[in-house]
């Protein structure tokens, strides 16, 4: 091969590489919206939120030594309603599931939970979304798994499906819970 011939092959080679890459990009299972969390393996943000149910404030300190699942929800959020039955099923699995009502009026949150059932162990109120910001929340619902040392280990964006809850969330929680 002369250099000139190699040079004329170059455009074809570049094009084929680009075409393969386009083909990969087209795979239907690719999720264009998924955004990995920047908070993975970082300590859970410090928070001290008023409780939705007149109880003591909800703070990250209360999670010490325990595996906690934190779910951001809001009554105005439609996907949260889709997710809700899955959370109710999780409640039966005896895991610690905290809810944080994100940018929601407390009375609306209460009404929502009274209507469809309360899956949460405890609930904090993040009225202005400030704590959500510290978590890196960019849309509700989002679900975080906190390990016993108080680090965020996993984030699920969007409504949890039964699939994800059973095959990803629960196994992770159980594995983290083992001493």
């Amino acid at each position: 091969m002369t250099p000139r011939r190699l040079l004329t092959l170059l455009p074809l080679a570049v094009f084929l590489a680009v075409a393969i890459y386009f083909a990969l990009a087209l795979r239907p299972e690719r999720d264009t919206q998924a955004l990995p969390s920047a908070m993975i393996d970082k300590p859970v943000p410090v928070f001290d939120l008023p409780s939705l149910a007149d109880g003591p404030n909800l703070s990250q300190a209360a999670a010490a030594g325990e595996v906690v699942v934190i779910n951001y929800f809001a009554s105005w959020c439609v996907p949260c309603r889709i997710e809700h039955p899955v959370l109710m099923a999780l409640k039966a699995q005896k895991i610690t599931l905290w809810g944080i009502a994100y940018k929601d009026k407390p009375e609306d949150s209460r009404k929502f939970l009274a209507q469809s059932g309360d899956p949460y162990t405890r609930i904090g109120v993040d009225r202005d979304g400030r704590i959500g910001f510290d978590f890196g929340v960019y849309g509700v619902p989002e679900t975080y798994v906190i390990d016993r040392a108080g680090h965020i280990r996993k984030r699920f964006v969007g409504p949890l499906s039964r699939e994800i809850a059973e095959h990803e969330l629960l196994p992770l929680v159980r594995a983290l819970a083992k001493p």
């Binding site: 955004l35 990995p36 969390s37 920047a38 908070m39 910001f133 510290d134 978590f135 890196g136 960019y138």
Partner: peptide
């Protein structure tokens, strides 16, 4: 901000 939301 990047601490919370990443370089994205």
């Amino acid at each position: 901000i990047t601490d919370r939301y990443g370089d994205f």
